[in-house]
Amino acid sequence: MIELIPNSDPLGLPVPASILLALKVFGFILHMIFMNLWLAGLPVALLLLHYRRRAAERLLTAMPFFMAFGINAGIVPLLFMQTLYPQFFYPATILQAWFWFVVIPLLLIAYYGVYLAAFGRFRFIAALAASLLLTWIGLTFSAAMSLTASPEKWPAIFLSTADAGSVHGIFLHLSMETLLRFLLMVGMACGTVATFLVLDAEWFKRDADYRAEIRSLAPLLYAVGLIIFGAAGSAYAPTVLGKLPPVWSYLAGASMPLGASLAAAYWRWPRKGIALALGFVHLIVLLSNAIARQIVQFHDLQKWVDLEKIPVRGEWGSFFLFAATLVLVIGMLTWIVRTVLSHVRSNA
């Protein structure tokens, strides 16, 4: 079986693996925040269209921004994934080639659906189509990442999908692990949407009706998220607990109930302090789960490749180019955000 795992790229790693892993996790967290907002935000907006119109409207209007930044941030973990683990990532996606390839056209359709819904055209149908497509894309990602970390499954899949030695690519790795990983993300996504709505109601859109809607909606949404997260987690956790240091297991598992408690507290005391605490705790939910996923992936793949043994080229020149550009971009983004906020607030 080991014979199917390709060699590491002969060019070696550009910088030490620890830096690449840190950047991968950083990008994944950024991506996760926005991806959560569309993954749960679209179905929630659809459900709320007739009951809590203001919240639905707010979510649908903001959705194109979530999509733009979420897709953009998604590039980062994929880039570093392909730098660290190309020998696992490429075979896993090639075995599912057609499903992986159609992510791009499906994403395009979903993205335009989101814009149609935001502009109020064919709102229900467009948002429903986008929501279904984005859910499918999420499952495809979950399938790709699960198979990437499970090379022991490759030979059987390969032999059943190969003709004359090459694969036809019509296969999707929909295992129990894939579904559980996806449901964990859906649970967190409900919490992320609830947290966004609370922060939005407290800081950006402060009309009383909207706040009243959010006050009752956020705890309910967070509680639904906790139930999904808890149910999927109780089935998934036994398979990964041995791979995780206890601190990350506790943080990843226990931060979500704390977030749900804060969302419930917001229903009783809708104040900025509680909203801020919820935002902070939910950030820990996302951070701890993203890091826990990275640790599990690292553990699973460590059996097959020791990243420490891959030679490092020391591409420090281009690394500093990136770091300097990032600092410059953050500076300019700060100016843009300040400009936007000053006009949005003066308009409100």
């Binding site: 953009n72 590039i75 880039l79 730098t83 591409e315 180019l321």
Partner: peptide
Amino acid sequence: IHIFVFGWATEWAVF
């Protein structure tokens, strides 16, 4: 990707 990873990362930041 192994040659240009930080070129792509820079392009991401600019994007």
